[in-house]
Design a binder for these strands. Structure first.
Lengths: 200, 200, 200, 200
DNA sequence: TATGAATGAGTGTTCATTCAT
DNA sequence: TATGAATGAACACTCATTCAT
């Protein structure tokens, strides 16, 4: 008989997204079965297909929405940069990136680790977005070098290094652990700008 | 651990390890089927079980061997440190870590990304080894702080940050690409020690 | 039979019948899904059930209507036979059967090939109607034999043979192809009558 | 535990073919599930895949083998024709076709009714073989017309008609029914030849 | 050691059907 | 009447693993 358990309409889609995020983060995309997912949501497995077209499509949806959020929020931050120099921009970037990656740690983690489960088209699209984001960091480094403030060795290597370091936060940060988000931001800002030997 | 009893099978076991490394790196552990693996090796699926006890066991074997190699090689480097200060040790650590992670990029990648597919016992064991390795970096940072040479903010945060940055090399480094291994090492050493603003 | 209660739905029911005829003819009854059917009609799956009671019911409806049409049209032809002899009747039968099977090729095809998807009751009913139709051909053959005009060997075998031959037209006839309907009718009439009238 | 029920090796493939033939004949290809098939054979559903690559592949295999048998047996019959005229050839064709279609009624039926479930490549291949077979009948009709013995109206129409009539035997013939195979052959031979030789 | 055939549980996905709105 | 969301069973197919030969 229809509709005994479970919820209706757009609420269901939201529940699927939430449960999917949780299960993919915990077990990985390949390891999550749609039966697990449906049971977490409280519906039958076939009912999932009233809301998603494909398992892969759910993954893409989660990653795509996260990338859109990332850009939307980053654009707000960037809007305030027009009059700032590279050092302030770098501090701003670190603060933004760390904050977002702490708040959205599961989306971010999935967005890196499950990329290869995307269909080619989706994969290319997400990778292109990621490159676009990276370019903003590279721009800051270039600006710093032009103004004689930064020395990077190689700009791309430095950018990848910094980005990887900051992103790592989503692997080990615990919300109510020993360190506050602000302490992490300060530590990383100083590390990035001054290294181990020349901090502020 | 693998069964490797019997006489003329070590070649097969080596082929399995090699093919497993390749396939897990390319598709992920969950996504690799033993049928794929057997076909890559050129044997039938049932024959795999003359050499491995379990799919998970192969993964554990690959990661464990890699961790052992990491420690063996790292111990050689460390043996020469007794008379060196923290700056030289840090340069040495960066050089070693980057080198190993470039040469063994697939093992390293798997060792991070497929950890969750290990059985609890194996998981704990590998994570403990990883922590032990990390502690060596933390020791360097502590030494530097004691001697008034380094300021880390928080030692653990700095250690995680540096480690993540260096490890990232296995994701993007291309052997015959624009940059040599030495250039990457130099860039990262300077970045770690002096940050963007105070490089040597 | 279809629910067709209510007022402004007959158009929808007609669209369902038309689309069902097309899809069953093209893909077979088992292979046609109600989702396909609904999408062909331009409504949602659930809406189908305002017009049909069951997937099987639609099939039955299509076949039953076609059988009714067959009988209605055949009865008109037969009404003119009272004063005709077996040869003229046979010519008339061939002309009628071929014409109907060319004009309604999809209904006819479905009426043969999808019979086994009918529920037992419906199956029996349609098979009985078919037998009734066949008996009219048998009657012509018998009349011919009684009057010494035909020699059939075995009346039933001849009847099945002739019927199968004529029915086959719905498999290969192309409306604007090399041959006109009239040519086919002439060829078959001569073939059949030659066979019946001039044996060994 | 492995291999408790069921049989080994090539015997299993033969059992699958046999059960497949039966089930497809009885329920149709789409309606036959691999669970049914496996259970008929006495093995688990997954074990089927040690012997077939695909459900469609089994269908193709059954039809292809039947077509090969048809040609092999027909070639033996034809080998004796070199010195025979069209009338004897036609009698020979009727006898062969009816005999084969009675003995192999299930393969023949499937070979017609389930063609559309074949993949495009397989479909084309089988249809081409069927056309090749039909051409042999057409050749007989042509020969008869050249020698002034037959009058067909249109050769192709006549060929299709005759073929359909003869093939129909596999739908209604019952092995131990009222009529023997020989009676059917005689009735059809006379019907066909009377038709071809004495048109109005 | 290698093979090939088996197991049984599991995969993502589709199905006809129901029904509150 | 139409919709959209649900059900639960079924689908073809794949999986890791076992084991007699």
């Amino acid at each position: 008989m229809a509709r005994t358990i479970g919820s209706h309409g757009p609420k269901t889609m939201e529940a699927i997204r939430k449960a999917g995020l949780k299960l993919i983060y915990e077990h990985g995309f390949e390891a999550m079965s749609l039966r697990q997912l449906a049971s977490e949501v409280g519906i039958q497995v076939g009912s999932l297909y009233n809301h998603i077209t494909t398992k892969e499509d759910l993954l893409y949806d989660l990653i795509r929405v996260h990338m859109d959020d990332l850009f939307r929020q980053f654009d707000e931050v960037r809007a305030a940069w027009t009059e700032l120099g590279p050092v302030e921009r770098m501090r701003g970037f670190v603060a933004f990136h760390v904050t977002y990656h702490i708040l959205r740690k599961r989306e971010v983690f999935i967005g890196y680790s499950e990329l290869r489960s995307l269909e080619p088209n989706h994969y290319e699209e997400i990778v292109a977005l990621r490159r676009q984001y990276e370019r903003h960091l590279i721009d800051i480094l270039r600006l710093g070098e032009e103004q004689g403030l930064f020395k990077c060795g190689d700009v791309s290597v430095a950018a990848y290094g910094i980005l990887t370091m900051l992103t790592g936060v989503c692997t080990w940060f615990r919300p109510h652990g020993r360190l506050s988000k602000e302490q992490v931001i300060t530590t990383y800002s100083n590390l990035v700008l001054g290294g181990l030997m020349h901090q502020g």
